[in-house]
Amino acid sequence: MNIKRIGSIAAIAIAGAVVLSSCAANEDAGSTESSSSNSDYSSLSGTLTGSGSSAQQTAQATWAAGFQDQASGVTVNYSPDGSGAGRKNFIAGAADFAGSDAALNDEELSGSFDLCKADTKAIDIPVYISPIAIAYKVDGVSDLTLDAKTIAGIFSGKITKWNDSQIADLNDGVDLPDANITVVHRSDDSGTTQNFSEYVSANAGDVWTEEPSQTFPYSVGDSAKGTSGVASAMGSATNAITYIDDSGAGDLDKAKLMVGDKATEISADGAAQVVADSKVATGREDNDLAIDIDRKDTADGAWPLVLVSYAIACQEYKDSDKADLVKGFLSYVVTGDAQDAAAKEAKSAALSSDLAEKAAAAVDSIK
Rank of each mutant, 00 (worst) to 15 (best):
I125T: 12
D143F: 00
V280I: 15
A25H: 00
Q56C: 14
A350M: 03
I6L: 13
I132G: 01
S142T: 15
A122I: 11
G46Q: 07
T75Q: 07
A65P: 07
T264S: 03
D169R: 04
I291F: 01
T264Q: 05
L104F: 07
V326N: 07
A311R: 11
G173L: 05
K121M: 09
D286M: 04
A103G: 14
Q194K: 14
A102Y: 14
L115P: 00
D321K: 13
D178N: 14
G260Y: 08
D253M: 03
T58N: 06
L144A: 00
L115A: 05
S21Q: 12
A362V: 12
V280R: 03
A118N: 13
I159K: 00
K347Q: 13
V230F: 01
K254V: 15
S42H: 11
S228W: 09
Y310K: 09
G50S: 12
Q68N: 13
P304V: 09
I3R: 11
T150R: 01
D143M: 00
S83N: 11
A17V: 15
D277M: 03
I123K: 06
G46V: 13
V127N: 08
E316Y: 08
I159L: 00
D164S: 05
A350K: 13
G93E: 07
K262T: 15
D169N: 11
G84V: 07
A102Q: 12
G248D: 12
Y218Q: 08
A349L: 01
S219T: 15
G250W: 00
N203W: 08
D101K: 04
L355T: 07
D81M: 04
D206T: 14
E211W: 08
P217N: 09
L176N: 00
A15S: 15
I151M: 06
R186K: 13
N195T: 11
V220R: 02
E357R: 13
S223Q: 14
V19C: 07
A290S: 15
G260H: 06
L307S: 14
S37W: 05
T193G: 02
Q214K: 09
L176W: 01
N105P: 03
G235Y: 10
I293V: 15
S201L: 01
D175M: 02
D294A: 05
N180F: 01
G140C: 05
P126I: 06
S83Q: 08
Y310L: 07
N180P: 04
A231G: 10
N105C: 02
L355I: 10
G52Y: 08
N89W: 00
N171I: 04
I244G: 06
S309Y: 04
G283L: 10
S213F: 06
L305W: 04
E107I: 06
A133R: 02
F113K: 04
V220D: 01
F329I: 12
M1F: 10
Q56I: 14
D106Y: 04
G140V: 09
S228H: 11
E27S: 13
L20M: 12
V174W: 02
